[in-house]
């Protein structure tokens, strides 16, 4: 082996990569396309209307830089940050029935919950209080995985940096609630999956029965 041959080869590898980033783009016609903005042409003076998402394909040499606040990585549906509680958009029904399963599977035990009671003291299938300590939560998604009522789900919002933790990092029921519409937007596949559709059907039926009963009572 001649002295320095290996080093030279190494340099050639990096040079090749450097050149390829340009030639590949030109060859595939991507050079004048707006990166991540679909097939629109480059526009230096106007920002794209929607937030560009950089989906890395497997063909391109190297890797795209995701210029974060202006561009994003694609958010996969299963991506999990912090849990949220879902309520039904149409009637405001909180799906959580306070069955405690989320608290029972929570590995770091960051969920606190207590059941609501009707004025005469009977337990109601609703949470009275619900807390998640996000300084303890490990984003493992166990709660949403084992929730039998599709009530607790993992949110996608990761932009939650803040300057204070003692007040803001404990999420109460009010902070956690999101609408089913929001959930359907973030998790379209899961929302449309047969299990969740059946579950929603079951709940709707139950709600309907309850309503009918109440109506009958009022008529009678």
């Amino acid at each position: 082996m001649a002295l320095g041959k290996g080093i030279l080869i190494g340099h050639l590898v990096t040079l090749r990569r450097f050149l390829l980033t340009f030639t590949h783009d030109i060859r595939t016609g991507k050079a004048l396309k707006r990166r991540g903005g679909g097939d629109l042409p480059v526009d230096l003076f106007e920002r794209p209307k929607t937030l560009p998402v950089i989906q890395q394909d497997t063909e391109t040499e190297g890797i795209f830089t995701v210029e974060y606040p202006d561009e994003r990585l694609p958010t996969y549906e299963r991506f999990r940050v912090l849990p949220v509680l879902v309520y039904d958009q149409e009637d405001g029904n909180v799906r959580c029935t306070c069955c405690n399963i989320c608290a029972k599977v929570c590995p770091p035990q960051c969920i606190w919950m207590s059941q609501a009671h009707s004025p005469d003291g009977k337990p109601v299938t609703l949470p009275e209080e619900y807390y998640i300590d996000m300084d303890v939560c490990m984003n493992c998604g166990m709660c949403s995985e084992y929730c039998p009522f599709d009530a607790i789900k993992m949110d996608h919002n990761f932009e939650i940096s803040n300057y204070e933790r003692h007040q803001t990092h404990i999420y109460s029921l009010q902070d956690l609630l999101v609408s089913s519409e929001y959930y359907a937007k973030t998790h379209p596949d899961a929302y449309a999956s047969t299990e969740q559709v059946t579950e929603r059907g079951k709940v709707a039926k139950k709600k309907d029965q309850r309503l009918q009963k109440a109506l009958q009572l009022s008529r009678g």
């Binding site: 974060y68 990585l73 912090l82 996000m134 932009e159 939650i160 940096s161 803040n162 933790r165």
Partner: peptide, 21 residues
């Protein structure tokens, strides 16, 4: 502490968000 970046672990994007904060 000046900025808290929640998450376990926060993704690089979340850290950048913290840096912007």
């Amino acid at each position: 502490v000046d900025v808290y970046v929640p998450g376990c672990p926060p993704t690089p994007q979340a850290l950048l968000n913290g840096l912007i904060a």
